[in-house]
Simulated scan of single mutants.
Amino acid sequence: MIKNPQVFLLVGACSFILSACDVSNQNSLLQSNENSFVLTSSVMNDGGYLPITYTCDGESITPPFSWNGAPQGTKYYVVMMYHNALDGVHSYWNMYNIEASNSYIESDQVLGEMGTNNLNDLNEYSSPCSQGPGYKNYTYTIYALSEAVILSNQSKVDRATLLAAIKNITLSSAEMNVIPFRLIS
């Protein structure tokens, strides 16, 4: 028979708390491993401004990016740029089958194959415009893939098509979110 129930409860509570700490350490380790794949740019920061140069108000070219920390087994990359608008997702840039030997993209450089943007339905970068109604948040995402994207003779390779094609071959992803620098009228 237990002579002091408070001691029993205290030991039980300590055991529970210590076991929870072990789980949180495991979760932290998983998160730190997942967050080791990072996308950066020499011209902007995550949460910062998209420079005018990379919009329709400037030179309408793609910004430069670099990445590191891709998981082991990465053979290809996909890069996408989009924003969620009131009327749906606007996709500006879809580049895929970028070989894993690459760790950066120069400004206005094409690596791999170009997919279709949904603004003019062409296989090219379509620069966003900083003007217009509402708040805009642009997301650049890089996906590390275990194999190449294989599509069956499709001339239109839009964001939805690419996301479906990479669903089972994505090892990890990293993203950067920016807002456009607004010109004052």
Rank of each mutant, 00 (worst) to 15 (best):
V78Y: 03
A165Y: 03
G112I: 08
A70R: 00
S155Q: 15
T139R: 02
I142E: 00
L122C: 09
N118P: 03
Q131E: 12
S126T: 15
G58M: 10
L162T: 06
H83A: 13
V157S: 03
A160N: 10
K75C: 02
M176G: 01
N153V: 11
N97E: 06
S172M: 07
M81E: 08
I105K: 01
N68H: 15
I150W: 15
N177Y: 12
Q131P: 12
W93A: 08
S152A: 14
Y140K: 00
T55R: 09
I166R: 01
I105H: 04
A174Y: 03
G73W: 07
V149W: 00
P63L: 07
T62V: 12
T170R: 01
S60P: 08
I169P: 01
Y82W: 13
L111V: 02
I150T: 14
H83E: 13
G73N: 09
Q154P: 12
S152L: 15
N118R: 08
G134T: 01
P64D: 07
I52E: 09
N120L: 04
Y135E: 14
M80N: 10
S127T: 08
L86R: 13
L86S: 15
A165W: 00
A174T: 02
N68I: 10
D87A: 14
L183T: 12
L145F: 02
Y96F: 05
S66L: 06
D57P: 12
Y140A: 10
G134E: 07
A100R: 01
